[in-house]
Simulated scan of single mutants.
Amino acid sequence: MAPPRNRRPGFSRRAQYGLFIGYVGAAAGALIGAVLLLLSTFNPPAFAAVRSVFAEVTTPVASGLDWVRRSLGSIPAGIGSYFAVHGENARLKKQIADDAIAVSRAQTLDQENRRLRALVKLRDVTTDAIVAARLVNSSSSSTRRFATLNAGSWQGVKRGQPVRDPTGLIGQVIETSPNSARVLLLVDPESIVPVRRSRDGLPAIASGRGDGLIDIRSASVASMGFRVGDAFVTSGTGGVFSPNIPVARVIRTQGDIAIAQPVANPDALDFALVQQTFLPEPTPTPSPSATASPQPAP
């Protein structure tokens, strides 16, 4: 059986109070409406004053509700903007990383081009250049220091020829094959180069240490001290290295020995120039051929 539509609140105090408040609110609203209607009809100025009072009271509430509405309405747009900004930030970071790689490559190419231009200029002004070749590798992790050139005997490279770059001396060819050559670097313990001090011509001997540095020892009888910053160049003694090729610069001293930094770093080089030895090799003297003794006449 269906329940009746009009149900009385019965003994529920809450229902009774709610119903009573509803009736009171309805009656009060109707009364206020009637008063405002009569006031607007018979006394418009008073009605305008009352309307202004209600406007002053309801305007802050309406403003607050409007702010809440606009704030709630802007939430989807804010979420979309966040993801859009996040994506744009990621794109810009990737672009910055790509630009940094491009700048690094450009700087590397610029340095290589400068070295090549200097090497070409050096080859143009020197008359003893054999070939400009690429330094394929160099051994920097062991006590023995060698490098490999991608040019050999077919390109005119011979054992004993000096190898340099525009900044200074690198080493000396010790082995050759048709298309490659092995270079003994200045910093190798077996390397010995006659040098002289630039400022006063003091003769000295530069020998490798095996740790990337060079020992400088005075070759004169008189003991003359070294100073930090002294520059040494090849002296031409021995007839292998041409004079005035930069070799090393002193970085510290230990008694009568100076520890020097080589001017040219083969680990940072791409190309090198092979030169003729300073003095040509002596021409072997032909042995006198045995002359046939005259045969006695029969």
Rank of each mutant, 00 (worst) to 15 (best):
A2S: 10
A2M: 06
A2D: 08
A2T: 05
A2K: 10
P3H: 13
P3K: 13
P3F: 06
R5K: 06
R5N: 00
N6I: 09
R7M: 07
R7I: 08
R8H: 14
R8I: 00
R8N: 12
G10T: 09
G10N: 12
G10W: 13
G10H: 11
F11G: 02
S12I: 01
S12P: 02
R13P: 01
R13E: 08
R14A: 15
R14G: 07
R14Q: 10
R14T: 12
A15F: 06
A15V: 00
A15L: 14
A15Y: 03
Q16W: 11
Q16H: 04
Q16F: 04
Y17I: 14
Y17T: 13
G18L: 15
G18R: 08
G18H: 13
L19C: 03
L19M: 12
L19T: 05
F20W: 12
F20S: 11
F20R: 04
I21M: 12
I21E: 01
I21L: 15
G22W: 09
G22S: 14
Y23V: 04
Y23Q: 02
G25S: 15
A27T: 08
A27N: 04
A27L: 10
A28M: 09
A28C: 14
A28H: 05
G29K: 03
G29D: 11
G29F: 08
A30S: 13
A30V: 13
A30I: 10
L31P: 00
L31V: 11
L31M: 10
L31Q: 02
I32D: 05
I32V: 10
I32E: 14
G33F: 13
G33V: 05
A34R: 03
A34W: 14
V35M: 07
V35E: 05
V35N: 01
V35H: 01
V35S: 04
V35G: 05
V35C: 01
L36V: 08
L36W: 11
L36T: 05
L37M: 06
L37Q: 01
L37I: 01
L38Q: 06
L39R: 02
L39T: 06
L39V: 12
L39F: 06
L39M: 10
L39Q: 02
S40M: 02
S40C: 02
S40E: 09
S40N: 07
T41R: 11
T41P: 01
T41G: 03
T41M: 04
F42C: 03
N43H: 13
N43K: 04
N43C: 03
N43I: 00
N43T: 04
P44S: 08
P44I: 10
P44W: 15
P44M: 11
P45K: 10
P45V: 11
P45W: 07
A46S: 09
F47W: 15
A48N: 12
A48E: 14
A49K: 11
A49C: 02
A49V: 09
A49G: 04
A49H: 07
V50H: 04
R51S: 15
R51W: 14
R51F: 15
S52K: 08
S52W: 14
S52P: 00
V53R: 01
F54S: 09
F54G: 07
F54P: 02
A55R: 06
A55K: 04
A55P: 00
A55E: 14
E56P: 01
E56S: 00
V57D: 02
V57Q: 03
T58A: 13
